[in-house]
Amino acid sequence: MPLLHISMRAGKPDAYRRAILDGLYRAMREALNVPEGDEFMTISEIAPANFRCGNAYGVARSDDAVLIQITVFASRTAEQKKALYRRITDLLGDNPGIRPGDVFVNVLDAPAENWSVGHGIAQFA
């Protein structure tokens, strides 16, 4: 039950943003085995003056950097997360053509009782 927040500079066409969402969903299905239809994702487009990515950690980033934050159940393994990072980078490289250095991913673990997916019920607690 991942929840994704994607931040990027404003100005990309709809097809570009759709390709990001499609690639992230596919990567989660393949690397984390999320169920079909488990799509909870938002894209925030940030004005260039309000978006900054440095080149720390030996990674050169361009203006096309995409910041992806994924909250998942705390049950995901390190191996699953590594596979997810790789798959996201590969798929976003294929379409819409984002350079590997411009794909920044952060995974947050949340206990099952921290989730309510509707009706005010803690479905996974």
Rank of each mutant, 00 (worst) to 15 (best):
R9D: 03
A10Q: 01
G11H: 08
R17I: 01
R17G: 13
R18L: 08
A19N: 00
I20L: 01
D22M: 12
D22H: 07
G23H: 00
L24E: 05
Y25G: 04
R26I: 00
R26L: 09
A27C: 06
M28F: 08
E30C: 13
V34C: 07
P35A: 14
E36C: 12
M41H: 02
I43R: 09
E45Q: 05
I46E: 04
I46V: 04
A47I: 13
A47W: 05
A49E: 07
N50P: 08
R52Q: 01
C53E: 11
C53F: 12
G54D: 00
N55K: 10
A56K: 09
A56E: 09
Y57F: 15
Y57N: 15
A60M: 12
S62E: 11
S62A: 11
S62W: 10
D64C: 15
A65Q: 01
V66T: 10
V66F: 06
L67G: 12
I68P: 07
Q69V: 13
Q69C: 09
V72D: 07
F73K: 10
F73Y: 08
S75T: 15
R76V: 01
T77N: 14
T77M: 11
A78N: 02
Q80C: 03
K82E: 11
K82L: 11
A83R: 14
Y85D: 00
I88W: 02
I88H: 03
D90G: 06
G93D: 01
N95Y: 07
G97C: 11
I98M: 04
I98H: 04
G101I: 08
D102N: 02
V107M: 06
L108N: 10
A110L: 05
A112W: 15
E113V: 04
S116D: 10
V117D: 11
H119K: 13
G120Q: 13
Q123R: 14
